[in-house]
Design a protein around this nucleic acid. Structure first.
Lengths: 209, 209
DNA sequence: TAGACTGTCTAACGTTTGTTAGGTCAAGTC
DNA sequence: GACTTGACCTAACAAACGTTAGACAGTCTA
C-alpha cells in the first residue's frame, strides 16, 4: 500500500490454460465489475474474494497487492478501448470521409465505455481515486491511447471542419470530455450509443470537411 | 455512516458571526480543499481537523457526521456555480447574441470549477465516490443547476445554431461533459479559462444563430 | 511411492477509520 | 459569586482495511 512501484500485471496476450489462470482472470473480472460501480476504495479484497468464491488471503497467491490488481484492470481497460478504436478505424474503407472516421471512433469509444465489459469504465472511474503509483503505471497506456485522438483532432482542425479558432489540443480534450463523462448519465434504457456517436460527431463537425 | 438520511447543512445565507461560525466555515473550507485534491475516502476527519487546528472529535460539535460535511460542501459548490452562471448571464445586455450568452455561461462555469474556490470542483469529484444518501441530498441542487443548461441547449437547437440532428438533451450532456471533465487535465500554467470558453463555444456553435 | 508444486484456507497482525462518552475551561448570565 | 453555555479536548470504541504466516489437500513429476 505504501511502497513505491506497481509492476505492470496487465495481460498483453491471453496466457495458457493452467487452472490458476482462470482464477486470476476471475479476480480481475470481479475487480473490474466492482470497481466500475463502487470505485477504488469500496473495492476491497474481501468483496472481490466473495464475488469469486474464494477467501481474501488467497488473492495473494495470484497478485502481490491490491494495487497490482487495480493497475492491471486499468491498463487492460485502456488497451481494450485502444484496440477497439484502432480496429474500427482500420475496418473503414480507405475512401471514408473525415466525418465517417470520427463517428466510427466515437462509437467505438462509447461502446467500449458503456456497453462492452467493465474494464474500460472501471479504469476511468478508478484513475482519479487511485494512489500515485497506480496512476504512474497507467500513464503510458493512456498516452498511447490519446495519441489516436491527437491525430484525429489535428486532421479535423487542418481540414477546417470545426469552429474557427479551435486548437487541436482543445478539440481533443473536449471530445474526450464529452465521451468520458457519459458514464455519469448514460442509462441503457434511455440512450443508444449509435445515436450519441452521431450527435457528438455532428456537434463537433458542423462544417463538413 | 450507515444510516438513512443526510440533513442538508449547506449555508443558504451566511449566518451571524458567533465564534463557532468561523470554525464551522473553517471546517468546510478545509474539507473542500482536501476533497478537491484527494477525493471522498482520503478526506478523513483527522485530516480535516489537522488543517483547521483542532482535534477530530471536536468536529462533532459542529456537524453530526462526516457525510453531513461532505454534503454541505457538495451542495454549496453546486449553488455557487449556479449563482455565478446566473449572475454572469444577468449581467449581459438584453441584446446579447446567443454566442455571447453561451460563451459567458461556459466561462462562468469553468471559472467556478477551475479557478474560484474549492467547493464546486470538490463536489464534482466527490459525487461519484460518495455513498447513496449523500448523492440523494445533492440531487435537487444539481437538477436546479442543470435546468440552466437545459434552457440554453434548447435555445441553441431551436436557433439551428449547432449540428443537424443534435437533440437539446445530448447537447446539454456534451457541454457539461467537456466542461466537467476539465479538472482532469487543466493546469493553470498551460491553459486559460477565457480561451477554453471561447473554443468550446466555437466548437458547439459552428453555425452562427 | 516419495517429494515437489498448486491453489486455497484459517487466523491473525497492525493500522486507520468514523464515532462517542465524558471531562475541561473560559465567557457570559442571573 | 453560583451557574449555564459554547467550544474544545482526551481517550477510547468497534469495525474494516491490506497484508502475512502457516497449514492443508490435491495433483503432477521423478
Amino acid at each position: 500500500m505504501t511502497s513505491g512501484e506497481i509492476v505492470d500485471a496487465s495481460e498483453g496476450d491471453v496466457g495458457s490454460a493452467r487452472s490458476g489462470e482462470k482464477s486470476r482472470r476471475d479476480i480481475l473480472d470481479a475487480a473490474a465489475r466492482i470497481l466500475r460501480r463502487r470505485g477504488y476504495h469500496a473495492t476491497t479484497l474481501r468483496t472481490i474474494a466473495d464475488a469469486v468464491g474464494i477467501k481474501a488471503g488467497s488473492i495473494y497467491y495470484h497478485f502481490a497487492s491490491k494495487d497490482e490488481i487495480i493497475a492491471a484492470v486499468m491498463n487492460d481497460g485502456v488497451d481494450a478501448v485502444r484496440r477497439a478504436v484502432t480496429e474500427a478505424l482500420a475496418g473503414l474503407a480507405a475512401t471514408a470521409s473525415l466525418e465517417e472516421r470520427l463517428e466510427t471512433a466515437v462509437r467505438a469509444h462509447l461502446h467500449a465505455l458503456l456497453e462492452f465489459g467493465d474494464y474500460t469504465s472501471a479504469g476511468l472511474k478508478a484513475y482519479s481515486e487511485a494512489p500515485e503509483p497506480v496512476r504512474d503505471a497507467a500513464r503510458p497506456h493512456r498516452l498511447a491511447y490519446e495519441a489516436i485522438w491527437d491525430r484525429l483532432a489535428e486532421e479535423i482542425v487542418a481540414a477546417g471542419a470545426t469552429g474557427t479558432g479551435v486548437s487541436a489540443r482543445s478539440l481533443k480534450l473536449a471530445l474526450l470530455g464529452m465521451m468520458n463523462w457519459s458514464p455519469e448519465w448514460y442509462r441503457p434504457d434511455r440512450h443508444r450509443v449509435d445515436d450519441l456517436a452521431r450527435e457528438f460527431t455532428a456537434l463537433v463537425l458542423s462544417r463538413r470537411g
